[in-house]
């Protein structure tokens, strides 16, 4: 206790900050989720859990949850697999490595909305450059191109492509940092024992990347789950709810229907979902335990 009091001047500002920017909004969000709030924002009193009941009763709710899981799993798995390969490449010495390493950072440095919009415009019929390419090479026979972002399936697939693209730099660099902690002696020992490159990678390198991978996966799961801008841009003009995830649905409640109460309730549900996904990951994979 005395140690805590002595530490207070140093950790105090951080605690205040956490209370103000994390705990207070959470409190307000949970509070809002149990109120009846009019479209123009007037609080009309408490309704208990009625907002939650309405969110769960929404006929598209479970498909949306399913799509959210697909979204998270596919994006994170693709990101991690591609990043493992990229990190391995960047760990080898070759001429121009510094330039390539810098190039990998670019999608991270660029605004996500900007990156997504570039792809989105590229996919537009009539004038999009990706469509123009596909038409000119004869892959698509319709002269104005295909409406990639106008159909739920293709729009969602392209959103996944963009999400993987923007998640690569962080993941690659986390794994690259992990690779550099792998001691050379262990690899050398493996080679002397007669292990081929594949065996050495899966038997020696990968287990030692355990904690780097744990960080990369956890942060990516949370980030990807909460990602709004990519899906918002790629699937925004599609009618109905066939390309929505939990996040875009929260946004639709808020922006289209002006239901701040429902949006808050779904946000609380979303928060529970993330905690559950992270919990399952920690439980099943046990990435934080020492090997």
């Amino acid at each position: 206790m005395r140690a805590f009091v002595r530490a207070l001047p140093w950790i105090g500002p951080a605690l205040v900050l956490i209370a103000l920017v994390v705990l207070f909004p959470i409190g307000v969000m949970i509070g809002n989720s149990t109120r009846d709030i009019s479209q123009s924002g007037v609080d009309r009193g408490g309704v208990g859990l009625a907002n939650y009941a309405e969110v769960f009763a929404f006929p598209y709710f479970w498909p949306i949850v399913g799509r959210t899981l697909v979204w998270v799993v596919v994006v994170v798995v693709l990101t991690v697999v591609i990043s493992l390969a990229l990190a391995q490449l960047l760990d080898k010495a070759f001429p121009g490595r510094r330039l390539v390493r810098m190039a990998v950072v670019v999608p991270w440095a660029a605004s996500v909305v900007m990156t997504t919009l570039v792809v989105h415009y590229g996919l537009e019929p009539y004038f999009g450059i990706i469509n123009a390419f596909l038409v000119d090479t004869g892959i698509i026979s319709r002269p104005e191109g295909f409406g990639w972002t106008r159909n739920p399936g293709t729009a969602f697939a392209w959103a996944i492509v963009v999400a993987v693209f923007v998640s690569l730099p962080f993941t690659t660099y986390t794994i690259l940092a992990g690779l550099q902690t792998v001691p050379g002696e262990t690899l050398e020992a493996a080679r002397i024992d007669g292990a081929g490159p594949l065996r050495a990678y899966f038997g020696v390198v990968l287990p030692q990347l355990r904690s780097a991978l744990a960080v990369a996966v956890l942060i990516n799961v949370i980030n990807v789950f909460n990602s709004l801008p990519i899906l918002r841009v790629m699937t925004g003009s599609i009618p109905g709810y066939d390309a929505d995830t939990v996040m875009t649905m929260i946004f639709k409640y808020m922006q289209n229907q002006h239901r701040i109460d429902l949006a808050s309730a779904l946000s609380v549900v979303a928060f529970g979902l993330v905690v559950a996904i992270v919990g399952v990951y920690l439980r099943v994979v046990r990435p934080l335990e020492e090997a």
Partner: peptide, 23 residues
Amino acid sequence: HTRRASGIIAITLATTTGLTACG
């Protein structure tokens, strides 16, 4: 272990509350 776990919870909290907080 617990310290790491609480760190994870803090990250989760911080990133999940972003959206509705902009209300």
